[in-house]
Simulated assay, not measured.
Amino acid sequence: MTHAQEPHGANHGSALNSLRAGVLGANDGIVSVAALLLGMAGSHASDSAILSGGIAATIAGAVSMALGEYVSVSAQRDSEKMLIAKEKQELKEIPEEEHEELVEILTGYGMTRETAHQATREIESGDLLAAHLRLELGIDGEDLTNPWAAAGWSAVSFLAGAALPMLAMVLAPFAAQAAVVAVTTIVALAITGFVSAKLADTAPIRSIVRLVVGGALGLAVTYGIGAAFGGVVG
């Protein structure tokens, strides 16, 4: 393995992964359920039909999000375990090459080879496996991703996100339901965009604009399709 030019220590921990999954789940819940509600409202469906459709979409979406996240994170965890096992074997069978890999990594950060060799020897006097996992692979062997936590966060956050347009639809006056759902959705997307940007340490405005514009277009399209098909059916 040659990792001298690759970024190391990229693993941010299962807690942050779960938090990000939660934000994404909430965003999906907001957009997908709001779009469905507006599409049905545009087709002039009855209140009971809209409510039933929203509840069904909320449950189905939460299950789908949880299952998808569980499968994805399980695959990642299996890959991390395989890499850990491989690294253990290499440390046992080819310690000299593994020593040289750490030297190359450290020289890649600007150390002289002499200093890198000395630093590597000091590292090897401690938890050798943990050092190699962090520096070579960006893995924390004590903090692997947790598929159950990620799945749970995704499901719960999807439900929380979906609850916003659902409540807006139920509580708003009949004549203003579509408008209230749309406004509620846009505000919620702006909030999730801000939170996503903070988690990723990027510019909040760009993230907010992307989500708000994309969400607004999605809502407009689904409402328009509902209105067009509702008129045809009617």
Rank of each mutant, 00 (worst) to 15 (best):
A85Q: 12
V187G: 04
V232R: 04
L133P: 11
I84V: 13
D47N: 05
R210Q: 12
G22R: 08
I105E: 00
A168Q: 03
E97Q: 14
T202N: 07
N11S: 14
H3N: 05
T185E: 04
L19G: 09
D47K: 06
D140W: 02
I59M: 13
A66S: 13
S14F: 06
L102R: 07
S207Q: 12
E6T: 14
M40T: 04
Y109N: 02
E114D: 13
L217E: 00
S32L: 07
A163D: 00
A75W: 00
A116I: 06
E96N: 05
L24W: 10
R206P: 01
R77H: 09
E98H: 08
S196R: 13
E101Y: 02
V195H: 01
M1S: 15
A172P: 10
I59F: 15
P204G: 07
G215I: 05
S207F: 03
A45R: 11
V187S: 02
A85W: 01
G218W: 08
A119Y: 09
V23L: 06
L38Q: 09
S18L: 05
S18R: 05
V212L: 04
V63I: 15
P173A: 02
T145N: 12
A10L: 13
G230H: 08
H8L: 02
A57F: 05
V221K: 01
L135N: 13
R77A: 06
G110A: 06
D47T: 12
S18H: 05
E90Q: 15
A62V: 09
L106D: 03
L219F: 02
G226N: 04
V103M: 00
A75R: 08
A182K: 04
L199W: 11
G226V: 00
V73C: 06
V33W: 07
L128E: 09
A151S: 14
M82V: 03
T107Q: 12
L135F: 15
A4K: 14
L51V: 15
A197C: 07
I59V: 15
T185Q: 10
V103I: 10
G54F: 05
G68R: 05
I208L: 03
V31S: 10
V23R: 00
E90C: 06
K198A: 11
E114H: 13
L217K: 01
I191V: 15
